[in-house]
């Protein structure tokens, strides 16, 4: 049962981090991508800040037999670069630029994102279901 509690804490911390870092503001994301215009480097600071603790966490995980509230750590990273990864990332990048939101921030901002946030989530969930169908066809 403890892992549900950790899940709750992680989700809360993640949401707070997204809010404080300004990643729930679509202007910040779109300006980050606007390298030939109003470039805003904030996202690089966010990513750096997030990667540092996570780098140490991966190192610590190698020295632990198992996670404190679960049985196994994730498998070693795959090196398989398949078409799904490439095409999926391209489509994700295009949508990300078009709206300035990705899955984490749009959920974190649901309480102040208005009808637009809700509509985006409905549409995003539809996209996930479509991808599930496509994945089943491919595999």
């Amino acid at each position: 049962m403890m892992h549900y509690l950790f899940s709750f804490f992680a989700g809360g911390l993640f949401g707070l981090g997204l809010l404080i870092s300004g990643m729930t503001d679509t202007n910040k994301i779109q300006n980050w991508l606007d390298i030939f215009g109003r470039w805003d480097p904030t996202l690089a600071f966010v990513l750096t800040g997030a990667i540092i603790p996570m780098f140490f966490a991966w190192q610590i995980s190698k020295r632990m037999k198992k996670p404190c509230a679960a049985e196994v750590f994730p498998a070693n990273p795959s090196i398989k670069i398949n078409p799904s990864l490439v095409f999926g990332s391209i489509l994700f990048g295009v949508g990300w630029a078009l709206i300035g939101l990705c899955p984490g921030p749009v959920i974190a901002s649901i309480s102040f994102g208005g009808w637009q946030g809700i509509l985006f989530i409905i549409s995003m969930v539809s996209g996930i279901f479509l991808a599930k169908i496509v994945k089943r066809q491919v595999n």
């Binding site: 993640f14 480097p41 509230a69 750590f73």
Partner: peptide, 25 residues
């Protein structure tokens, strides 16, 4: 804005660390 970005980023990193080290995910 950079300072907020870095602080928020650290929180995201701690969240991801907790999720990995506690839940193995």
């Amino acid at each position: 804005s950079y300072l907020y970005g870095l602080s928020g980023g650290l929180l995201i990193g701690f969240a991801a660390s907790m999720y990995l080290l506690c839940n193995g995910r």
